[in-house]
Design a binder for these strands. Structure first.
Lengths: 123, 123
DNA sequence: AAAAAGACTTGTGGATTGCAAGTGAGTTTC
DNA sequence: GAAACTCACTTGCAATCCACAAGTCTTTTT
């Protein structure tokens, strides 16, 4: 009889956790090639599917759809009625999502310093 | 004749870049589930293959091998003779790798704040 | 000299990605 | 008010990537 069998660890959204390390946990949520770029766009105030889709990295629409849902599931973003008063809705960051700001800033600073081909976006 | 055909953008290691955004560029290098965990271990002073392999997240050895090589290619880590004077060598961060510290710290802080199951590692 | 540890490499099935095309609701144009 | 168009996705599919297990080769320990 195992003394300390942890079962499966889960995060708040019910997805499995690899460990109790907060870095590992953050990576379980946004550790892939696309998620933080969507969050970057959200930080810039973009809110609609087509806006994210139009970013220069060219995220495939199926991936974008999946990532947006993941952000909703984990409570990093929420849906709100579109700003233009149309029947559609947009996405915006929650406080949990906005508080990834320091991560993005640190990445931006690192990229600017060490990969000189890159340029900070105006806006 | 296209006026501004960019060809393929590449970063310093010759890998293709998705855009000029420094965040996208950082993610091209370490935007996956494992790379930043290896860097975390390196920050903690771990240096040998078996050390990374023993971390609680359980990185598969083939992935670890590939990621270590990528860190070398991009100049985030370098190989040095092992500290114990044996014939083997270890890995350690370069300045470029160490300067990802703020990214890891921001992720750690975020994880601790928003995913309360997590715990900061005592080393 | 034999056994064990360390650092990978290889093989394989399953999951994820990237790309193209399709769908259906909402919006604009004529 | 019907047709065309935009938007926000889905679906299909080939290619790639990942996780897990096992194997190999070198170095270290006994």
């Amino acid at each position: 009889m195992p003394k300390n069998q942890p079962g499966k660890l889960k995060n708040k959204a019910g997805d499995p956790l690899r460990s109790l390390c907060p870095v590992a946990c953050a990576l379980d949520i946004c550790g892939d090639r696309w998620t933080l770029l969507v969050i970057r766009d959200l930080m810039f105030g973009r809110s609609r599917f087509k806006d994210f889709s139009a970013s220069p990295e060219g995220i495939p629409t199926n991936i974008l759809s999946e990532r947006l849902n993941r952000l909703l599931r984990h409570g990093l973003a929420e849906q709100v009625p579109a700003a233009d008063g149309s029947m559609r809705y947009g996405y915006q960051l929650t406080e949990k999502g906005r508080s990834l700001g320091p991560v993005l800033e640190a990445m931006r600073d690192w990229g600017l310093k060490w990969e000189p081909t890159t340029k900070a976006m105006i806006q």
